[in-house]
Simulated assay, not measured.
Amino acid sequence: MRQIVLDTETTGLSAENGDRIIEIGCVELLNRKLTGNNLHHYINPERDSHEDALKVHGISNEFLRDKPKFAQLADEILDYLSGAELIIHNAPFDISFLNKELERLGRKPIKAYIDGVIDTLVMAKEMFPGKRNGLDALCDRLGVDNSSRTLHGALLDAELLADVYINMTRGQDALIVEEGIPTEVSLGEELVQVDLSRLELPVLTANEQEAAAHDAVLADIDKACKGKTLWRQLAPAV
């Protein structure tokens, strides 16, 4: 599965009232693993940022004057996002700005190019009801190092959100078994084929303490999911 963690910085809060995107940052996950194939651009918004927005992102109007306009980057951005599932914190905000930029160019809304959107703010509110669920708060809660985040920045925030998302979904990347693992061992210049078909792996049965700890973890996950975990639903009645 290809996922793109996306964040934008803007001139203000309202795409409908003429605010524009000034920065876009994207981080690629393939089968829930970071690939390093990221995308990052500063964009000339053809207008000045609001004073309050400048305090958030610190990107000056002068800095953006010679940057490419969204129209010049649209094809590259859409090609990069094509077919992927987007992961965004407070998705309606970023989606509204992307859609407005595409509308100006006579293009279809972003949903026509992608495979769906995951809103991590919605996820966080369900997992941590009544708590602060901004990116900084989630980083603190989930043990993600955000010490370099003094101002908002699209690429940095997307990188942090990628870590937050993996942690919020219980690090399931550890359960991914990659295909195509080589069965050849290099001995100097020579490759030796290793036959694994006869390998017998020992089966270690959990003791009572380990089994109890496992049940406690499952109970915590089920509680966080409000009793919607599949193993609880399919568990036979006692």
Rank of each mutant, 00 (worst) to 15 (best):
T169S: 04
A219F: 13
Q3E: 09
L13T: 06
L204H: 11
R232S: 15
H40P: 00
L151G: 05
N44W: 15
L138C: 04
A216N: 04
I77G: 06
C139Y: 03
P45V: 10
R170H: 14
L151F: 11
G227A: 13
L175P: 05
R170F: 13
L204T: 14
V122Y: 09
P129E: 09
D119F: 09
G58D: 05
H50S: 06
N61Y: 06
N44Q: 12
L142G: 03
L234M: 07
V203T: 11
I87N: 00
L191K: 02
N167R: 12
I21R: 13
R47D: 07
T150Y: 07
V238N: 10
E85S: 11
A224M: 14
I118A: 13
Y42S: 08
A224P: 03
E85L: 12
Q172K: 15
S60E: 05
L142F: 03
K69I: 14
G83E: 01
A112W: 07
N37V: 04
S82E: 07
S82I: 04
L201T: 12
H214R: 15
D173G: 10
A15L: 08
I95F: 02
T169Q: 02
E200T: 08
G130E: 10
A224K: 07
G134D: 04
R20A: 10
D115K: 11
R149I: 08
T169M: 01
L86Y: 06
N207L: 09
V203Y: 11
